[in-house]
C-alpha cells in the first residue's frame, strides 16, 4: 500500500510529458520480468502494438497479477496499473473506474483508443478476465 501511495505521488508530481516518460522508465525497472515459458501466446493481450503478457491468478478470491512487455514504457504503465488492482477481489476490481484512476496518475495519454497502445485492452482483460 505504501508502494502504491509512493507511486501515485511520483506520477502525480510529473509536470511534463518528459517527466512522466522518465518516471515510467524508472518504474519499469521495478516490474519483475516474466520467464520465456510465461510469455506464451495464451497470455498475450491482443490489441497492443508492443507485446504485452498478463497472467492473472486467483487465490482465496483475491486476484494476483504478473505482467510483462517488450516495451519499457509499457512496463512502467503496467506497474501503475497492477498497483491499483493487485490483491483485490474481482468484485472490487470491477467496481473501480480504472481509466479515471490512471488519468489521475497523469497517464491519460496512454488511454486513447489509438492502435499504438493497448492499455484499454489490458484494463478489459483485468476487469473481465474470462473473455
Amino acid at each position: 500500500m505504501t508502494d502504491t501511495i509512493h507511486l501515485k505521488a511520483q506520477l502525480q508530481a510529473c509536470r511534463s510529458k518528459e517527466d512522466t516518460f522518465k518516471t515510467l522508465v524508472t518504474l519499469s525497472k521495478t516490474l519483475p520480468r516474466l520467464s520465456a515459458e510465461e510469455k506464451i501466446e495464451d497470455n498475450k493481450v491482443k490489441g497492443c502494438e508492443s507485446a504485452v503478457w498478463l497472467i492473472i491468478e486467483e487465490n482465496h478470491g483475491l486476484h494476483h497479477f504478473k505482467a510483462d512487455s517488450d516495451a519499457k514504457l509499457m512496463r512502467g504503465v503496467l506497474v501503475a496499473i497492477l498497483s491499483l488492482v493487485e490483491g483485490k477481489t474481482l468484485a472490487d476490481i470491477q467496481q473501480m473506474d480504472l481509466k479515471a484512476e490512471l488519468a489521475e496518475l497523469n497517464l491519460s495519454s496512454y488511454l486513447t483508443s489509438s492502435r499504438t497502445n493497448g492499455v484499454l485492452a489490458i484494463l478489459e482483460k483485468i476487469q473481465v478476465p474470462k473473455q
Binding site: 518528459e18 516518460f21 502494438e49 508492443s50 517488450d70 516495451a71 519499457k72 514504457l73 509499457m74 499504438t116 497502445n117
Partner: peptide
Amino acid sequence: NIHILDINAY
C-alpha cells in the same frame, strides 16, 4: 534492444 514505441514516446 530498444523498443521503437519507447523512442517514439520520448
